[in-house]
């Protein structure tokens, strides 16, 4: 394939960043790799760019920890803005499937969720105050999980299974027990999430602000 490239080295050199990040298409990857095999300069550059990429990803993975706590607050602002806008400009479009909204229904549902959330939250906090209520899961039944940071969660009745699964994945959580008598689940934090700095407290803090979660508390271990 080299014959189609007038200046193979210059072309390969320009494409090395995407060989480094694994996003070259097959045809380009094959000839750039073939060139690099016979070009020490390109091999050195490729190794250098991989180091830069690795460092940038590491930097990025470590940097946004504090921003995660701002996410829900920011979303709430945006959602308030959307609701205010839609309340100020009622839908007149006869085609509801063309991207238009139905604000009265949205607000009604939101209000219903809030009422349910408050009710479930009160139930949950009541249960937390009870000295007998320590954990839903008996720790001796799951010795390999007993030390993992865990969170007790009650989801909003309006939350779909898909939404719940997405939410759990985003936080690196895995359900290990539930639902309990008050609809409460116990979820543990994955090793990856812990390694990246997440704790039961931080995750519960984020979860408790999510509109799909009625109640979230870290479980003391």
């Amino acid at each position: 394939m080299n014959s189609r490239i007038p200046d193979t080295h210059a072309e390969a050199w320009a494409l090395l960043p995407w060989l480094a990040n694994g996003r070259l298409d097959t045809a380009d990857r094959e000839w750039v790799e073939a060139h690099a095999q016979s070009c020490a300069e390109c091999r050195t550059e490729l190794a250098a760019q991989k180091r830069v990429a690795t460092q940038m990803q590491r930097d990025a993975a470590e940097a946004p920890a504090s921003a995660a706590n701002d996410e829900q607050r920011s979303f709430n602002k945006l959602w308030s803005r959307i609701e205010a806008s839609e309340a100020a400009a009622p839908v007149t479009n006869a085609n509801p499937g063309a991207g238009r909204r139905a604000p009265p229904m949205v607000r009604w549902l939101a209000a219903a969720v809030v009422v349910q959330a408050i009710g479930l939250g009160v139930l949950g906090f009541g249960a937390m105050r009870s000295p007998e209520f320590v954990t839903v899961t008996k720790e001796e039944a799951r010795p390999n999980r007993s030390r993992a940071p865990a969170v007790r969660i009650v989801f909003s009745p309006a939350a779909s299974i898909e939404t719940i699964n997405t939410l759990l994945e985003h936080q690196g959580l895995q359900i290990v027990d539930g639902p309990g008598t008050q609809g409460n689940f116990t979820a543990i934090l994955s090793a990856d999430a812990v390694a990246s700095g997440a704790s039961a407290e931080s995750v519960a803090g984020v979860m408790s602000k999510d509109p799909n979660v009625s109640f979230a508390q870290p479980i003391a271990r």
């Binding site: 990025a60 946004p64 920890a65 995660a68 994955s190 990856d192």
Partner: peptide, 8 residues
């Protein structure tokens, strides 16, 4: 697992 820090 999709952790916020690893999402990037």
């Amino acid at each position: 697992i999709e952790n916020p820090a690893l999402r990037l």
